[in-house]
């Protein structure tokens, strides 16, 4: 379980997050939606320790991790897949994957890499290639696979659909869904593409200008025409 309480973060005089609270339950996909600048990315960056909040708490399975440095989060079970270029393009596919499992026991590392390559066969095929040569969809699979190497309890995903063809997005979301079902993973999915996010999410949280506007079942949000027009753009 993952929870934020009254989380408030500012960049200088600009308040990007303003008292945000919500809970993402285990074995569920929680979609965080909203327009550009709503505070979605800041929410994830604050949660994973890359940005310091002014106020509020982040809880991982009930434990307060608010001021934990970003480099300790992976060990605690929180994996953050950042927006856009999260792949280290100078390293090979396998090296990227190995980096995901740094704090796991070294002897299971090879087996972990194999497991991820079974999940994403295209990564297995390109194993020794420099990540530089991967397509956008393959890069997204690589960063998700790398996050899964850490065997996280909570997975924070920032705009995984960005710049990808709908077919690839459907493939990635389908995989995510099956992982949540099989491993009981808690997923917080930040998306601008609200329609596809709500199609796989259980719960949706809508942000606007740093505040939570509404949170409800994904199906209910998708059915609310006024809300969709006002905040979700579809």
């Amino acid at each position: 379980m993952f929870e934020v309480r009254d989380l408030t973060t500012s960049y200088g005089p600009v308040r990007a997050l303003d008292g945000v609270s919500f809970t993402a339950r285990e074995g569920r996909v929680t979609a965080v939606l909203g327009a550009n600048g709503a505070g979605k990315t800041t929410l994830l960056r604050t949660a994973s320790g890359l940005v310091r909040p002014q106020r509020g708490q982040v809880l991982l399975e009930g434990r307060d991790i608010t001021r934990t440095p970003a480099e300790d989060m992976a060990r605690l079970g929180l994996a953050h897949v950042p927006e856009g270029r999260g792949v280290i393009t100078e390293l090979t596919v396998e090296e990227n994957l190995r980096l995901g499992g740094l704090h796991r026991p070294a002897r299971t590392r090879a087996a972990d890499v194999e497991r991820i390559c079974r999940l994403f066969p295209v990564l297995g095929e390109r194993h020794d290639a420099t990540a530089h040569v991967l397509s956008g969809g393959e890069r997204q699979m690589l960063v998700i696979g790398r996050a899964l190497m850490a065997a996280p309890k909570v997975l924070l995903l920032d705009e995984p659909s960005l710049g990808l063809a709908p077919r690839i997005v459907a493939q990635i979301f389908g995989l995510l869904r099956s992982l949540v079902a099989s491993d009981g993973l808690t997923v917080v999915l930040v998306e601008q593409n609200a329609r596809s996010a709500l199609s796989i999410a259980d719960v949706g949280v809508v942000l606007n200008l740093g505040k939570v506007v509404v949170q409800d079942d994904a199906a209910a949000l998708a059915a609310d025409e006024k809300l969709r027009h006002a905040y979700l753009g579809f």
Binding site: A70, A79, R85, L102, R146, A150
Partner: peptide, 11 residues
Amino acid sequence: FNQEVARILGV
């Protein structure tokens, strides 16, 4: 190569 990504991976 990438300080921020390295940090969130626990480096």
